[in-house]
Design a protein around this nucleic acid. Structure first.
Lengths: 138, 138
DNA sequence: ACAATTCCTTTTAACTTTGTAGGATATTAC
DNA sequence: GTAATATCCTACAAAGTTAAAAGGAATTGT
């Protein structure tokens, strides 16, 4: 049970963006340098975040990425869900889960549902602002 | 972020053991049949559970496995930890984690620590008894 | 024109998961 | 004492996932 490095990188990237002045576009190259993540890998990580509407991009010189919402309105859950799809502990809980014949009598399902809720409750109440040092708050 | 099928099977197996009369040894073949898990795979799953002291075994005819403690005293956390080692969301939180140079300034670490705690708090307070239907309680 | 940048697709290497297989060892029943 | 029933132990293999690199096309500002 581990979150992928993509998840970890995405969160780090978003925290860095949140701690920079908003309204300006930050090129991935800058983040690549300061976070020590390869530019090419970052490009892949950023794609689902932009698709999910968490980031706006601008191409070309002076281009880059910026948050589409204030840091206080973007949660870790938003980010992880953008990268992972659903954040669920087992496949049975997927929205499109094939129906398992033993589901009606399954005694472990309630346990996993509870864990799912504990995890999602937590990640949905931590915002990017919570992860930025007060000095950098906007 | 998913728990492995080994984790899921281990939990199912333990719940089944908990819902049978204690003090008797249940052969894996019986569990293999009722849970529809291959005997050979079950053998591998059971090994770490026995090593962790959650199960006692007896070899030979009339042998099998039994819980070493009442179902109310075995938690899902005990089981998952036996199978997985530590239950942690990212490698940085491992007991033997190599020290990361960016750790002192890492702004995401606190998030992962909080998630780790939310997960472990939950799994440590669900017992096998909680997952057994009242009728089968001992 | 040129440099900087995002965007899009493909490929590869390493790793992890999910099993299967074969046999050795212990215990009970007959 | 032999056969049947189990656990135990180790190795192997197939499939899937992750982490990353590579190459180039499209867009924008100077």
């Amino acid at each position: 049970m581990k979150f992928s490095t993509k998840d970890r990188y995405a969160l780090r990237m978003m925290v860095e963006l949140a701690s920079r002045p908003p309204e300006t576009f930050v090129p991935l190259k800058a983040i690549s340098t300061s976070q020590d993540i390869s530019l090419k890998y970052l490009e892949q990580i950023v794609t689902p975040l932009a698709r999910a509407g968490l980031l706006a991009s601008e191409r070309g010189s002076q281009g880059g990425y910026q948050l589409t919402r204030p840091a206080a309105e973007i949660t870790a859950g938003d980010i992880l869900r953008a990268v992972e799809g659903e954040v669920i502990p087992i496949p049975c809980l997927a929205a499109d889960a094939e129906d398992c014949p033993r589901r009606p009598q399954c005694r472990t399902l309630s346990f996993w549902e509870g864990l799912n809720q504990a995890i999602n409750d937590y990640i949905d109440h931590v915002t990017l602002q919570d992860l930025c040092p007060p000095a950098a708050k906007k």
